[in-house]
């Protein structure tokens, strides 16, 4: 029996889709059979982040409306054969699918897959309700900003109200240099405010932009973000992994330059 994980945040643009792509790919790298579902109907994104946009034939709405069978709509990943994507529809809107239908779909996929990852749209309306309908647990993505943290708190409340209590927090796009200067909330600050267990801290890493450009998730790569995502995957599987030291390891010359840049 598989497990359904919803990746959600409330606020848009904090990295839900990137997180879904990387955590999903990482779990597949660790040998799990994984399907990623883009539940953002009308604003399809996960396919381009995964680099699979050219292979779409059927989508989530087709499956729910029985236009095709589930298997026909699943797209196999380019690199990992135990990783699949169920893309969203681009021409419909959120009302094309109901929470009951999503729950039924999730239950069916649980028979076949170890992990079903739901990429949730921003907001708390129907799209959110659809995405969490069949979820067993949630990964809440936030950035260390007041707006994102506040929305995350609202989302946690709504998840709990819907009996989803196995919730973990990912603090995304953290900049250690700014935290040190006292100009950015630390991951500890965010955890203290939200009172949810932390499952990962992903540094602000330009490699993420490059990975999205090319449509190849960077999980498992040597970059800081790549390592952080792989650690999150291991923790999702229940492994205890120490948190990365995200401190910049600067050479003497860079440190020297940094002093001058500051003043």
């Amino acid at each position: 029996m598989g497990e359904v994980i919803v990746i959600t945040s409330g606020k848009g643009g904090v990295g839900k889709t990137t997180t879904t792509a990387n955590v999903g790919t990482g779990l597949a790298m660790l040998g799990k059979k994984v399907v990623l579902i883009d539940t953002d109907i009308g604003l399809r994104n996960l396919d381009v982040v995964m680099g699979l946009e050219n292979r779409i034939v059927y989508n989530l709405v087709d499956v729910v409306e029985n236009t095709c069978r589930i298997k026909q709509a699943l797209i196999k990943d380019k690199r990992y054969e135990n990783l699949y994507l169920l893309p969203s529809a681009q021409t419909k809107d959120k009302t094309a699918v109901s929470p009951e239908q999503m729950k039924k779909l999730a239950d069916e996929l649980k028979e076949e897959f170890d992990y079903i990852l739901m990429d949730c749209p921003a907001g708390i309306e129907q799209g959110f309700k659809n995405a969490i309908a069949g979820a067993d647990r949630a990964l809440i993505v936030t950035t260390p900003e007041v707006s994102a943290v506040r929305d995350a708190d609202r989302i946690i409340g709504l998840l709990e109200a819907n009996e989803i209590r196995d919730n973990h927090l990912i603090v995304n796009r953290l900049r250690t240099d700014m935290v040190k200067e006292g100009n950015m909330l630390s991951s500890d600050d965010v955890v203290e405010i939200l009172a949810v267990d932390l499952i990962g801290v992903v540094p602000d890493d330009e490699q993420i932009v490059i990975a999205t450009n090319t449509g190849e998730p960077l999980v498992g790569s040597d970059s800081k973000a790549g390592k952080a995502y792989m650690n999150i995957c291991k923790r999702v599987l229940g492994e205890e992994v120490p948190f990365l030291d995200l401190e910049e390891t600067k050479g003497f010359f860079e440190k020297f330059k940094a002093i001058f840049k500051r003043s």
Binding site: V146, V149, R150, G182, R262
Partner: peptide
């Protein structure tokens, strides 16, 4: 800039302000 401006602004830096504002809002 960082050190000096922190010094002149007093002890509270912007992340403390953020944290306090968030606590009240939440």
């Amino acid at each position: 800039m960082g050190l000096l401006s922190n010094f002149f602004r007093g002890s509270e830096n912007s992340s403390d302000i953020a944290k306090n504002r968030l606590k009240v809002a939440i």
